[in-house]
Design a protein around this nucleic acid. Sequence first.
DNA 1: GAACCTTCGTTAGAAGTTATAACTCGACGC
DNA 2: GCGTCGAGTTATAACTTCTAACGAAGGTTC
Lengths: 217, 217
Amino acid sequence: MATTDAGNPRERYRTQVRTEIKKHAWEQIATAGTSALSLNAIAKQMGMSGPALYRYFAGRDDLITELVREAYRSLAETLRTASATGADLAALAHALRAWALEDPQRYFLIYGTPVPGYRAPEDITGISDEIMKTLLDACTELAPDGPATLFTAHLEDHRDWADGHPAPPAALHRALAVWTRLHGVLSLELAGHFTDMGFDPALFFAAELDDLLARPA
Amino acid sequence: MATTDAGNPRERYRTQVRTEIKKHAWEQIATAGTSALSLNAIAKQMGMSGPALYRYFAGRDDLITELVREAYRSLAETLRTASATGADLAALAHALRAWALEDPQRYFLIYGTPVPGYRAPEDITGISDEIMKTLLDACTELAPDGPATLFTAHLEDHRDWADGHPAPPAALHRALAVWTRLHGVLSLELAGHFTDMGFDPALFFAAELDDLLARPA
DNA sequence: GAACCTTCGTTAGAAGTTATAACTCGACGC
DNA sequence: GCGTCGAGTTATAACTTCTAACGAAGGTTC
């Protein structure tokens, strides 16, 4: 929380209003979805009228981008602290699920339907790199090596995304599998595709996780 | 295409205009995303002004619901014809991927970020049941039985969603795994999370599929 | 202390959206 | 021929984002 609140009282007030705006924005998103986010409604809730918000955000897109950044930071921090307290891959996965269930729309803000033209700012991709790094750490720690397959051979030649991480190809593969499989279960659960199906999503998530932990590749 | 075009010329004109509206809507969605869909813009493209569209759709939500229905129907038909031509699970998976790549926003219309309050009409869940049925068929055909696990035991007691399908628990589990894992890879690929990572998404998809085909559980 | 200047919040307004109401016109059945 | 039904129109309300111009209140500088 020790974000740069410069001694300047003007600046301090400014950041405080910004965070209050974002707080209301998160509430709106959580209840009605990102598409229903309205600057006017936020302004009304804060007792000030319309265009005042443009002193704090360049526009709707800028606010949403800031929320995406915040979501990425929150996820990265969640996984970082989990990893720092000696969590293995399984604990990391459960931390991810808990974080996602805490606010499904926040999860979808990161991993949900993209807007065709939109390209995330550079600093955001940096945070996503950190997330990938903690995932790669947990995967290399789990099983240093594994059997070579067609895809691990391909990854050997295309490991730029690992950003110099010393993970062996099998760990790279496992990291990708963890990411996509957990996202597969999680996103469909959060989207409500499992409701009325009868089975327990938590058990299915655990089963997928067990499978990821057990297998060599 | 043999949808009920009643002999009534009035009715025929009506359905033709409806399909033309949907055609323009699909174009808008494909290029700018569902959130950017504008009834006004569609009307302008068709050379008629604004409120005329309300003769054909009750509103924006009604049009989108119809598009969702159409997307579900398209996917169900794609998988049905693939299955009818003797396709196994692998071919089914590749048909799914081809269908998704053909129009990513159409895929996200079904499996993307949900609107918190929204509940799909009854007939749509019916189509989704058919999709699940062809998936279950392919899974039972592939491996009639498999080892009992904790989750298969749970599925044994919660198989209402299979809707009376005679698939053994292992096949139920495999169907769920196929669904969620392929969705995991596909949705992240379509959302652009793999761009700039270097590896080939098609190879990763194939690797996940191979894993799904090889394993007993 | 007085003048200045930056920043905040305001109101007014443009351009866009969904959606409703009321009206006109044309085609079809009798 | 005439009535009815439906399609498309304009007008209007109630929204939205966002810009422009203005007033007021704060801190800074002389």
